[in-house]
Simulated scan of single mutants.
Amino acid sequence: MNTNTTDIGILNELSEMIALRMKSFMDPAHDGDWVEHKSHADYDLWFIQSGIVKIAIHGTEHTARPGDVVLFYPGIPYIASTIGSGCRFIYVHFDFGIGQQQRILDDFQLSGVVPGELVREETALFDASYVRSKGNRLYMKACLTAVLAKIIELHGQGAYIGTFAHGKSSRKTGGSLDVLQRVFQYVDERLHTAIKMSELAAIAGVSEKYFISYFKKIVGITPGQYIYQIKMNRARDYLYQKKYTVQQIASFLGYPDPFTFSKAFKKYYRVPPSKFE
């Protein structure tokens, strides 16, 4: 799979559903003889503080220097070493997922050495938050989120492409977001209608029953939940523009009447559209 073709827009659309959980973190110092043969069960970020780190993956050697960030995907074996007087880095093990899909990043070619100049502001915040981590882990989590969001943004802009995976997904289960790109596009273009599962299944080229199961496995939520989230995102955007009536927005989003739309909106945002700010 060529992960460059996968649109990162799905992560923006479902940003409110993303769950990031820090599992462990530390700042080990290693001497010049350090060598590590390993693969991780979760996502792993290294913030290089000093020295030079060499990372060999699939027979290719990569170099990380102070200020660089190294993103490892789960299950990818590597050999890490240092030279000279050694190295020190902060590492963070974390989970990043949507709903039941805890490997959502695997569909994007992000794993690799991120040059420090591309994430300087975000890594500076993270480094400072690490010093305060014993007293404010919530702040550290927020800074880690900012770093990942920046890496994702850079990838979407074409300014960074990870080199660890060589364009291949590290998912162990079959399928990928690529298969659903036409489905996402169709939903976006047809929000003004009552979208049927049979229509989406036909676009994906599978049976309706299989489509629902496949979608949930890959995205982490059901197609119905996805459509609802997209509609609520668009409803919020329309209301922010302050140009449309509730009746117009209900029509834009395929609701039969303003009452049905207002009920769906209040269920999500806890306030009716008329009081949303």
Results as ranks from 00 to 15, higher is better:
residue 262 S to R: 13
residue 240 Y to V: 06
residue 25 F to N: 01
residue 69 V to K: 04
residue 57 I to P: 03
residue 75 G to Q: 06
residue 8 I to P: 15
residue 166 H to V: 03
residue 177 L to Y: 01
residue 78 Y to C: 10
residue 129 S to W: 09
residue 179 V to P: 00
residue 57 I to Y: 08
residue 72 F to T: 02
residue 99 G to T: 04
residue 19 A to G: 00
residue 47 F to D: 04
residue 243 K to R: 15
residue 144 L to M: 14
residue 151 I to S: 07
residue 57 I to W: 08
residue 140 M to D: 08
residue 155 H to R: 12
residue 106 D to K: 03
residue 101 Q to L: 05
residue 165 A to P: 00
residue 275 K to F: 13
residue 83 I to N: 10
residue 162 G to T: 02
residue 195 I to S: 01
residue 208 E to Q: 14
residue 210 Y to H: 13
residue 8 I to Q: 04
residue 190 R to T: 13
residue 68 D to Q: 06
residue 215 F to G: 08
residue 122 E to I: 05
residue 63 T to G: 00
residue 138 L to T: 14
residue 86 G to Y: 08
residue 106 D to L: 12
residue 230 I to T: 14
residue 39 S to V: 00
residue 260 T to G: 01
residue 57 I to V: 15
residue 230 I to M: 12
residue 243 K to M: 13
residue 116 G to E: 04
residue 21 R to Y: 01
residue 227 I to F: 12
residue 168 K to R: 14
residue 17 M to K: 11
residue 155 H to E: 06
residue 199 E to P: 02
residue 274 S to G: 07
residue 195 I to F: 04
residue 89 F to R: 10
residue 13 E to K: 07
residue 84 G to H: 08
residue 127 D to T: 15
residue 181 Q to K: 08
residue 77 P to W: 07
residue 202 A to H: 13
residue 39 S to K: 10
residue 195 I to G: 03
residue 229 Q to F: 05
residue 198 S to N: 07
residue 249 I to V: 15
residue 114 V to W: 02
residue 113 V to T: 04
residue 74 P to C: 10
residue 85 S to V: 05
residue 156 G to A: 09
residue 272 P to M: 06
residue 194 A to D: 14
residue 3 T to P: 00
residue 71 L to Y: 05
residue 7 D to Y: 02
residue 186 Y to R: 04
residue 195 I to P: 02
residue 209 K to F: 09
residue 200 L to T: 09
residue 269 Y to W: 14
residue 5 T to C: 00
residue 143 C to Q: 13
residue 276 F to V: 05
residue 141 K to G: 12
residue 262 S to E: 10
residue 184 F to D: 04
residue 86 G to P: 04
residue 86 G to I: 11
residue 89 F to Y: 15
residue 249 I to R: 03
residue 109 Q to G: 00
residue 81 S to K: 10
residue 81 S to E: 09
residue 35 V to E: 08
residue 128 A to S: 12
residue 30 H to R: 07
residue 265 F to Y: 06
residue 25 F to A: 04
residue 61 E to A: 13
residue 252 F to M: 03
residue 154 L to T: 10
residue 241 Q to G: 09
residue 157 Q to E: 14
residue 59 G to N: 03
residue 23 K to F: 00
residue 13 E to Y: 01
residue 247 Q to C: 06
residue 203 I to Q: 03
residue 28 P to L: 03
residue 102 Q to W: 06
residue 147 V to D: 04
residue 96 F to D: 01
residue 19 A to Q: 11
residue 159 A to K: 15
residue 117 E to V: 06
residue 21 R to V: 12
residue 209 K to H: 13
residue 3 T to W: 00
residue 215 F to D: 09
residue 192 H to Q: 11
residue 145 T to G: 11
residue 187 V to A: 03
residue 18 I to F: 06
residue 28 P to E: 04
residue 35 V to K: 03
residue 227 I to T: 12
residue 115 P to L: 05
residue 56 A to N: 12
residue 73 Y to I: 01
residue 184 F to S: 02
residue 146 A to G: 07
residue 227 I to H: 10
residue 214 Y to E: 10
residue 52 I to W: 00
